[in-house]
């Protein structure tokens, strides 16, 4: 009886509480600002720049935009200099992502055991990732300095030129990127490694598998899906890289596609053309990501 009484007194109250705001209202409260934000700052500019990419619009001139059809795309795709920029970007992506995977996964393997101060070490190793790109670029510029940089001093390289050396500059930028983003790969790898059940290693030991065999047949296949995700993220980021390369050097050999795009848009003011280039880059990133995702699904299936 007592319970029933409580129920009847509580019930209208709780109904009143929910009357204040329905589920639908709450949903809209959370979602609508996000949608508005997305439309204003992402979708609208995306569509608008798609429109510009078919014109000869220059943001620096008052002349109205003229529709030129596919001319921007045709010219860009036939421009050997643009392809040089893409080649530089590809080289940068390959070096930087492979470097990050090797360093990140290697460190994760070292950390994936019982060592003292594991948490502290992991946190400290994550620091580079938390710094701002501009800060990292500026202080690596100092580290690389041929006359007073600590890198040459530590490696005993004398006045070896890193950033002003056209053959070396791109690798120097990639090295900085590896330093900064290996922790990201490490973090994901560590999550993947610790998710491999310990009893599988015991079973492998009983099955007389050596440590290399265990690594290639058990560890790597089971970590592969999450490692693939790390690689997808890093490839996309490396493909779009701008700040690091822009701050560290101004060599033609480090002019990755984003820098070319930036110059085209804001130094040469070829707004229409740069919009077309941005779209070409976007399509390429999407294509690469798709290939990875296909591969990821295959890895997951195994």
């Amino acid at each position: 009886m007592a319970t029933a009484a409580v129920m009847t007194t509580l019930d209208p109250k709780s109904r009143a509480a929910s009357r204040g705001m329905s589920d639908l209202a709450i949903r809209n409260l959370f979602i609508i600002p996000t949608i508005v934000f997305l439309i204003v700052f992402n979708i609208f500019p995306l569509m608008y720049s798609l429109g510009y990419s078919f014109t000869d619009f220059r943001a620096s001139s008052p002349a109205p935009a003229n529709f030129v059809g596919l001319q921007n795309y045709r010219e860009l795709l036939n421009d050997p200099f643009i392809w040089t920029n893409f080649a530089i970007t590809a080289k940068y992506v390959i070096v930087s992502v492979i470097g990050q995977v090797i360093v990140g996964f290697g460190v994760a393997l070292l950390l994936n055991r019982d060592i003292p101060f594991k948490g502290l070490i992991t946190t400290l190793l994550l620091l580079p990732m938390m710094l701002s790109m501009a800060v990292v670029g500026l202080f690596w510029k100092l580290l690389y300095d041929p006359s007073f940089g600590i890198i040459n001093y530590a490696l005993g390289l004398g006045t070896f030129e890193w950033l002003s050396n056209p053959d070396m500059a791109l690798y120097a930028v990639a090295l900085t990127d590896i330093w900064m983003w290996s922790p990201f790969v490490m973090l994901l790898s560590l999550a993947g490694l610790s998710a491999v059940p310990k009893h599988l290693y015991e079973a492998a030991a009983i099955d007389r598998a050596g440590s290399l065999y265990t690594f290639f047949r058990i560890t790597l296949p089971l970590v592969a899906p999450i490692l693939m995700i790390a690689i997808i993220f890093r490839t996309m980021e490396a493909f779009k890289t701008f700040d690091l390369a822009y701050i560290l050097t101004s060599q033609p050999t480090t002019e990755v596609i984003s820098i070319r795009l930036y110059k085209m848009a804001f130094q040469e003011w070829q707004t229409g053309r740069s919009c077309a280039l941005a779209y070409i880059v976007l399509i390429m990133v999407l294509a690469i990501t798709n290939i990875y995702v296909k591969y990821l699904n295959k890895v997951k299936e195994r």
Binding site: P197, H199, L200, E202, A203, A204, A205, I206, D207, R208, A209, G210, R217, I218, P221, L222, R302
Partner: peptide, 29 residues
């Protein structure tokens, strides 16, 4: 080490290698 003792073990959790087929699991040792 376990590998040097030439002893086989069946675990309570079975400990099958999840990413390998039955054939590969049996072939593993």
């Amino acid at each position: 080490k376990a590998a040097a003792r030439d002893i086989a073990m069946v675990f309570q959790s079975f400990s099958l290698y999840p990413h390998m087929s039955v054939y590969e699991n049996i072939a593993f040792p």
